[in-house]
Nucleic acid binder design. Sequence first.
RNA 1: CGGGGUGUAGUGUAACGGCUAACAUUCCUGUUUUGGGAACAGGCGACUCAGGGUUCGAAUCCCUGCACCCCGACCA
Length: 415
Amino acid sequence: MRQSQLFTKTRKEAPADEVSKNAQLLIKAGFIHKEIAGVYSLLPLGLRVVNKIKKIISTEMEALGSVEIIMSTLQNKEIWEITDRWSDEKVDVWFKSALKNGNEVGFGWSHEEPITNMMKFHTGSYNELPRYVHQFQNKLRNEVRAKSGIMRCREFVMKDMYSYSVDEKQHMDFYNKVTESYMKVFNNIGLGGITYITSASGGLFTEKFSHEFQTLCEAGEDNIYVHKDGKLALNEEIWNDETLEKLAVKKEDFEFKKAAEVGNIFTFGTGKSEQLGLFFNDSEGKKRPVFLGSYGIGVTRLMGVIAEVFADEKGLSWPKEVSPFAVHLVRLGVSNETLEFADNMYNDLQKKGVEVLYDDRDLRPGEKFADSDLIGIPVRMVVSDKTLAVNKIEVKFRNKAEAELLDIEEALKIL
RNA sequence: CGGGGUGUAGUGUAACGGCUAACAUUCCUGUUUUGGGAACAGGCGACUCAGGGUUCGAAUCCCUGCACCCCGACCA
C-alpha cells in the first residue's frame, strides 16, 4: 500500500482522554478510532493487525478440526430464558433491544446458548460427534466501566470455539489438544515466553474448571502467581493453601505478576445440553446429552496487549507475525532517479507478494522516520539519493538502534 | 453501581468575572529547504459540551443534564 493512499494521519500528541498506553499509541499511529467509551473502530492499519491475528488463530483452529461459522449478533431471548441467563440479575452485561412488534432481542455477549441450540438441528448420532466449530465475532457487552483502552471494551472481536463430544474422555482429549494449540497460537503471535496457562476457578455456570491464558503485561487486569519452572501459573482468585496443597507445590516457588487474560478455555459438561435439549443416540440407541466445552481468545485485546508489551518511547513495535506490513519502504529525496527506483522496488515487492507499506509521500526525512517508528513495522528500508549513489539500501530493524547499508540483493533476502 | 476528576478550533494547551477567546500543532497559499517531526510570510478553523440561573458583564460562579477519564466494586 502506498502511504499516500492511507487516509489515516499520525499525531504528535496523545489524546487527552486516553491514559492507557495501548490506546494512546494505537490512536496516535492511526490504528484505531474511538467512537464512544469502550468502543473503537478499526482503521486500515489496525484491521490488518487484527486480520493477521485472526489468520494465525484460524490456522490452528482448523488444524484441530474446527470449522468456521458466523453466528448472528441479534439473539433470541427464549433460548437464554431456558438456561436462565436472560435476566439482568443473572447476566449484567446484556445489551437488549426490541423488535417493532415488541419482542425482545439480545445482542450477543456470548454465543454459547444459540450455537448449542443450533447444533440440535445437526446432531443426532454418536457418529456425528465430536464436532468443533469456531467463529470470529464482535461481542457486545454492556460493561459498567470500560477501561484500559482496547483491553476492556463494550464491543470487541473475540474468537470463540465450541466443542461437542460424546463424553468427558473425548472432551478432555480435545481440551488438552486445545491447550497445546493455544500455546502455539500465542507463540506464533509473538507472545511466546510471556504467556502462561493459568489455572482459575470455573465461572458461575461451569461444572468443572477452566484455564486462562495470561500474558504478562503491566496494563493487565489480572494478578497471577507464576511458578519458577514457568509451566504453572495460578490466578490470584484460587491462590490459597488448599490449591497449593492439591497441586503439591510450595508457595515460595511462585512469583507475583500482573497479566492480561488473552484466552480462556472451559469445560462445561452436559448441563447446558440437557437444558437446551442437545442429545445424541449412542451405539446402543440410548439418548445421551452432549458434553460441551468452550474456548475463547480475545482478538482485539491481543492487539492491545501486543501494543503495550513491545512499544518503546518512539511508538509501536510489532512482532513480524502480526505487523500490518512486512516492510516499510521509505523514500527520501526528490530526484527522479530515486523516485523511479523506489517505485520499481515497491512494484517488485508487491509482485513477489511481500506486504509493503511504501512511504511515497513528499515529506521531510524527520517526519517520515518519526511516522515509521510510530507505526512500528519491524523492518524499515530507506531508499534515497544517498543510498542510490552507493547502490545500496538502508535497512533498519525497529527493535534495533543502528541501521545498516546492504546490497539490494541482500536486503531483499531479509524479506 | 459507589467515589473522584475533566469538558475551550481536527489535536494538545492558555486565558483575574471585563477589549475581537490566545499559543502550538494540524490544514491551506507562497518562497526557500530535504537523513530524525525544517525556516519565513500569509491564511482557514471555536456561539468555550448542552440547557437554565447569578451578574451591567460569564469560557470563568451556581444548578441540571450529557460525555469522557481515573479509583473501587464487577468481569464466563
